[in-house]
Design a protein around this nucleic acid. Structure first.
Lengths: 350, 350
DNA sequence: TTTCAACACGAAAACGTTTGCGTTGCCCAA
DNA sequence: TTGGGCAACGCAAACGTTTTCGTGTTGAAA
């Protein structure tokens, strides 16, 4: 087992100084052609690579991005990571991942672990618990210490940082308008309680679409499901609530669900009640994940382009990191990029 | 914007030496109660945290684990990461992720980027391209440099390292035996070409199960799908192949699929052909992902316990890392842990 | 008064780099 | 012979820690 070779060892072996070795490897003009070749040959032979940690310490930058997300077993978030990793790697950066599990404490701890020199900047999406408690001191402190943050999807407007979001309102409107265009007269929405920001926004889009088409929303058609039912363990309760919705509103001919799970569950219930999809009932969901594609019938969805979000976020962060060095001018000008949603039509609509 | 405070700055401010500050913060007995309190108060006020990079350089360990996986938008892999992150964090480690995208080159480059001091050890699952080319020099070189590796799921027996795998043969046997126990007489398998190791093993389990029950396998019931059809873009081809299988073997009453996608597609085709599930046809798949749970009917699956795999892999790696310091005895004794599969029964079987 | 321990602290090395600057040795021109 | 100039290399600092080994001061014992 031969440990990694260092400049010092090469220097000793070739009986020159450390600086000579370093300069020879970086093709400095100060070094004679002769020794340069000798050093480079030796380095190649022993497969020398500069130690990243030492470089990080010297340059005071790690070329590493920290990602903090609520969970990773989730189509959207893993797509975002894919996007981040793609451009990060292309631009010479590594990616280090922390999971908050939707917990405030874990979010804070994870950020502290990474903020002490391990990374140059954060890309994150805020935990639900943090959103509820509205305690954002860890974000502002991090930023105050000169470490830039890029937030995506779940963001806080008041925090001074770059942001990448999808236009939830517009996306929802798009979906509902599709249903209206397809002839639906009684469109229900299955959404979350209002404290989930994206749920609220998508509900708003639903309402605006109805309004724009002179259709008055009926409260009986708005089902606000408790967020807890999103966990896999309460599927039956979710089914019951949806069944109740369908049974007490026999005239429903369109459903807009704010996520895949609500949508497939709605389709399941519909099948049970012998409602033909898309003939008698059309369904559209937000979030284009793996379920939508492979459910029967396959789901028409509003795609958020998670990978694009990740790519954009990484570009924003790295741009800021590499700008900080020279130009301090742009210091306090932050961007909010909106990634357009796209309606992907499948079998659940006409 | 106040930059992160260092020992040096504290020392200067309090007019003591750097060493005194360091010792005071670590509660050394060499320091008087008086100055200790002063230093600690000051440090707390300015929210001092030791710089991780400097510590890494000094201690020659980063307390960071590198993960290299083929892709992250995949239920199994993200579950594994969840497990790794869980125990890594608990034991004071961070996790840095690299994606190979099933490409040999990206796998090599990613490992090189991380092996230069950024991490203490690897947890990885090998890219398909690497498996085909059978070029494993980057693994052996890494290990030779004293950096331990733990492989999971897709492993190479010849490489000297710890491994965490599932018993694919046994899991497949379990599934097929369930079908046999449920009265199936003509069980088909939808699997991959043999160069995919897990596909091969699962096929082997299928054959063994039949054999054990004196049922002779029929080649017409074995569908080896080209791996490329796993990509989302070739769903229709996949459907056609399966439809062909069903049509030319009208007596099929059980299907074992080596992954979720094959299984849900098979169910889709069955529905088209008016085969009732589970009455006329029972289906079991390998890999318990999100599709199985939410398909209609929901799928009986063989769960691999991805999270447990991740947890075990992380424990193995960290154990070895923390053992290396003191005990060099266990150097060349490597473990292969088999995580038991579990049959999760749902609606697609009787 | 001398001596010696205990106490409280500082200097310096080390981890592995990069880089500005100083220091040789040599050649050539004056 | 002297001096200037250049080529080729080494020294040392710096990044932020921790830790070993001094070193100076004090107090008490001899």
């Amino acid at each position: 087992m031969k440990r990694k070779v260092t400049l010092k060892q090469i220097a000793k072996e070739l009986d020159v100084s450390i600086s000579t070795v370093s300069k020879a490897l970086r093709n400095s003009v100060e070094i004679s052609e002769d020794t340069r070749q000798k050093v480079q040959a030796f380095a190649k032979l022993y497969n020398y690579r500069p130690n990243n940690i030492a470089l990080s310490l010297k340059n005071r930058k790690t070329k590493t991005i920290g990602i903090i997300i609520p969970e990773i077993v989730h189509h959207f978030f893993s797509k975002v990571i894919t996007g981040i990793e793609l451009v990060a790697n292309k631009r010479g950066y590594n990616v280090i991942v922390g999971l908050s599990n939707e917990s405030f404490d874990k979010e804070v701890i994870n950020m502290q672990m990474l903020a002490n020199g391990s990374i140059d900047g954060f890309i994150l999406s805020i935990a639900k618990e943090t959103l509820q408690q509205q305690d954002y001191h860890h974000f502002t402190e991090t930023i105050n210490q000169g470490m830039p943050i890029v937030m995506f999807d779940r963001v806080i407007n008041e925090i001074p940082c770059d942001k990448v979001i999808v236009d939830d309102i517009k996306g929802a409107k798009l979906a509902v308008e599709k249903l209206i265009g397809n002839g639906c007269k009684n469109i229900a929405i299955i959404t979350t309680k209002d404290y989930i920001s994206v749920g609220k926004l998508r509900t708003q889009g639903y309402l605006e679409a109805l309004e724009d088409h002179k259709m008055s929303p009926k409260s009986s058609l708005i089902l606000k499901v408790d967020d807890k039912l999103l966990s896999e363990n309460h599927l039956d309760e979710l089914e019951k609530e949806i069944e109740q919705l369908f049974k007490s509103n026999k005239n429903i001919d369109g459903v807009f669900a704010v996520n895949e799970l609500y949508a497939v569950t709605a389709m399941k219930v519909a099948r049970k009640l012998d409602l033909e999809i898309p003939e008698a009932l059309q369904v559209i969901s937000f979030t284009d994940g793996v379920l939508s594609k492979h459910s029967t019938p396959s789901l028409t969805t509003v795609s958020q382009h998670g990978q694009k979000i990740g790519e954009k976020a990484a570009d924003l962060l790295i741009n800021r990191l590499e700008l900080d060095d020279t130009d301090e001018a742009e210091e306090d000008h932050y961007e909010t990029v909106v990634i357009e949603t796209e309606l992907i039509e499948r079998e659940s609509t006409k």
